[in-house]
Design a binder for these strands. Sequence first.
DNA 1: CGCTAATCTAGAACAAGTTTCAGACTGGGT
DNA 2: ACCCAGTCTGAAACTTGTTCTAGATTAGCG
Lengths: 215, 215
Amino acid sequence: MGHMTTEPKSPTARAVPAGPSLPLTERQEARRRRILQATAELASRGGFDAVQMREVAEAAGVALGTLYRYFPSKVHLLVATMQDQLQRLHGTLRKRPPTDADPAARVAQTLMRAFRAMQREPHLADAMVRALTFADRSVSAEVDTVSRLTTAIILDAMGPAGPPSPEQLSAVRVIEHTWHSALITWLSGRASIAQVRIDIETVCRLIRLTTPQQA
Amino acid sequence: MGHMTTEPKSPTARAVPAGPSLPLTERQEARRRRILQATAELASRGGFDAVQMREVAEAAGVALGTLYRYFPSKVHLLVATMQDQLQRLHGTLRKRPPTDADPAARVAQTLMRAFRAMQREPHLADAMVRALTFADRSVSAEVDTVSRLTTAIILDAMGPAGPPSPEQLSAVRVIEHTWHSALITWLSGRASIAQVRIDIETVCRLIRLTTPQQA
DNA sequence: CGCTAATCTAGAACAAGTTTCAGACTGGGT
DNA sequence: ACCCAGTCTGAAACTTGTTCTAGATTAGCG
C-alpha cells in the first residue's frame, strides 16, 4: 500500500470529530482505525492506566498531536473505543438474538451475554467503563451516543414491539443505570459476578411491570 | 489555641488511614478536619478539577507530603469527603424522616431530598461522585464504606422493619446503582432534574415488588 | 532534661495528560 | 508546474497528581 490517496484540506477547519457527517479520506479513516485498535490493545493489556497517549500514538504510528486532533482527550478516545466495541457487540447480538419468551428474561440474557464479553477482556472493560463514567460535559455528546447504542441493544432484546411507551423507556433507562453501575462495582472488585447477575435480573423485573400483557 | 497537645509516634509505622480504629491525636484530628474542609470548599467552587492537591494542602495549612500521608490519593481524599458529607446528610434525614405511608414513596422522597442537597452544591457533588465512580481497587474499602452508608440511608427510609430480606437487599442495591448513575448523567448534563426524579421513582417501584404487604 | 522514633515541612523530582510550535507534506485549484 | 490551505510530524513545554529527600518538630519515655 505505497501510493497516494486524497486528503482534503478541511471540513470545518478545526478538528476531526467522530461524526459520520465528515467524509474522512481513506488515509484518515485508516489512521482513526489504527488509533482505535492500538487503544483497544493497550487497554486489554493493562486497563485505563495502560492507555498512555504517547504509547497509543506510537503504536498507531501517528504523532501525538495528530492523536489529539482525532480524539481531543484520553476520555474521548476511550469513549470512542467503547462505541466501536458496542457496535461490534450489537452486530453479534443481532445474529443470535435471545430466545426466551419473556421480554424481561431476554433483556437479562442479553446483558449477561454482554457481561461475559466484558469478562473475557476485563482490562479493556475497565478502561472503557471508567472513561465513560469519568467523562465530563465536554464528552457528553459522545457518551450520549454510547447511551443510545446501549438503549438500542436493550430495546432489541425486548422484542419487535413498535414504539416503546414512556414507561418502558424509563425502565430501560433504569436498566442502563444498573448495568453501568453494577459493572463498575464488579470491575473495582466490590461485587461478584453472581451479584451482578442478581442485580441485572432484579432490575429486569421492571420490564414486567410495564408489559403485563405479552404480544 | 496555642499550646501543646500529644502526638504519638506511630500506630502502625505506616500511614494515617481513616479507620476510627487508630486513635488520632487532637492535632491530627484537627489537621484531618482542616483538610476535608478545604477539600469541600475547593470542590464547591469548581468541582473535581478545582480540587488540586497543592491547593488543598496550602488551604489546609499542611505540607503536600502530609496531605498524602492522610489521604493516599486525590480519589481517596474525595471519597473521604463524600463519607463526611453523607454522614452529615444521614444525621439531617434522621431528624425529619419522610412521612409517606408507602415505603417505596418514602425511599423516593429521601433520595429526592438528597438530590436537592446535591443541587445546592453541584460542583461538590460532581467532585465526589466522579471520584467515587473513578475509584479503582485501591480505594474499594473506602468506597464500600460510602456504599454501606447509602444503604443504611435507604433502609432507614424503607421503615422500621427488622432484618431486610435478600430480595429487598437486591432491590436496595439496584436503587443505589440507579441513584449513582442517574446522578452522573445529571452532573454531566445528559439528563434533566425531572428525568432523574422519574428514574428514581421508577426504580423505587421495585420495593413494592418485595413488600406487597404493609406493616 | 535528654533520647529516639515518628511526624511534619519545604521543596525538588518524576510521570503522564495536554498544549504549542516550527517545519515538512499533501492535494486540489489555477 | 505552482500556490495555498490544511494536515501531519517531532519535539519541547506546561500542568497537575504523585513520590522522594533532608532537615526541623513533636511526643512518649526514662
